[in-house]
Amino acid sequence: MADPSFFVGIVGNIISILVFTSPIATFRRVVRNKSTEEFRWLPYVTTLLCTSLWAFYGLLKPSGLLIITVNAAGAALQATYVALYLAYAPRDTKVKMAKVVVGVNICFFAAVVVVGLVALHGAVRLFAVGVLCSALTIAMYAAPMAAMRTVVKTRSVEYMPFSLSFFLFLNGGIWSVYSLLVKDYFIGVCTHDVHTHIQYIEAQI
């Protein structure tokens, strides 16, 4: 009989990937109007970094397949969003964004992978990458406060849709259960839904 954590992880993968697709409507609008309008690009870049790092963490972790699949899918979607934003952004924004993408998503990520594979080994390597992933993700927790401030100021939940918030809450709960089952508290700290939550809310403001 399969481990219960496997079934919980599968459910988490399905919900997470569905949530990762939430900005598709935004980018349909971008492509249709051939303009990024007032949408912010930084959340997509930071989410791409986080999902890439978590995918790397999954590769290092024994039995980390479900961590790899959800974050690899997330990284692929984020990379698509970043590419579309670059394609339709104004020239000045495009240049600035491209520099950040190269510096963060390519150079920094490559440095983490190289250091992790060459300089660190065994449990120390997994721990170090886990700490880095958790630290970066927790640092992003503050971003939704902007949306909450807007909700309070306007007395409208337009910028924080209930359906999305509910699924993010459900997603966080699923991954928290998964983290307890596999005894991986790095996953429990971050619950894997923060990335898309931040990116989606920031994109709507």
Results as ranks from 00 to 15, higher is better:
G64N: 08
A111Q: 07
T21Q: 03
L65R: 03
A25N: 05
R40C: 04
T26C: 04
T36F: 05
N33D: 10
V11R: 01
N13R: 05
W41D: 09
L66E: 01
T93Q: 14
G122W: 02
F7D: 04
L18T: 08
V30C: 05
G58R: 02
L49Y: 06
G116L: 09
L53D: 00
L42F: 12
V70G: 03
T69S: 07
R40Q: 09
D92C: 06
V118N: 04
I24V: 13
L53M: 12
Y57C: 08
V70I: 13
K99T: 13
K34H: 05
T47K: 05
A110I: 08
E38M: 11
Y81E: 04
N105L: 11
L77E: 11
T46E: 07
T69E: 04
G9K: 11
A87L: 14
P90Y: 13
A79K: 11
L49T: 05
V30K: 01
A79D: 09
L60I: 03
C50W: 02
T80K: 07
A25F: 10
R91A: 13
V114H: 03
V70C: 13
I14D: 08
R28P: 01
A110H: 03
V45D: 00
I106E: 03
L77F: 14
F109E: 06
K34V: 01
L84R: 06
V112E: 06
A55M: 06
N33W: 01
V104N: 12
P43M: 13
L86G: 14
I10V: 15
K61G: 02
V101A: 02
A76C: 13
V118C: 11
K94G: 00
F108T: 11
T51S: 12
N105V: 13
V104H: 08
R40V: 10
A72H: 03
P62T: 10
T51M: 08
S5A: 15
A72L: 15
V30P: 00
A76S: 15
T21K: 05
Y57N: 09
F20K: 04
V101G: 02
V30M: 07
F56K: 08
A98V: 09
P62D: 13
V95P: 05
R40T: 06
V114K: 05
A98P: 04
H121T: 13
N33R: 13
A119I: 10
L86N: 12
I14N: 08
Y81R: 03
G74E: 11
V115M: 09
L77P: 07
F7N: 07
I24A: 04
P23A: 02
T93F: 04
V118W: 10
G12T: 07
L49G: 02
I106L: 15
P43E: 12
S5E: 08
G58I: 00
T21E: 01
A87G: 05
A73P: 03
K61V: 07
L120D: 06
L84K: 06
E38T: 09
V31F: 00
V102P: 00
P23H: 02
K61H: 12
Y44P: 06
F20A: 08
F39P: 01
N13T: 09
E37F: 00
M97P: 05
T93K: 14
V104T: 12
W41T: 10
I14S: 10
A79Y: 11
N33L: 12
A72I: 15
K94H: 10
T51W: 02
R28K: 01
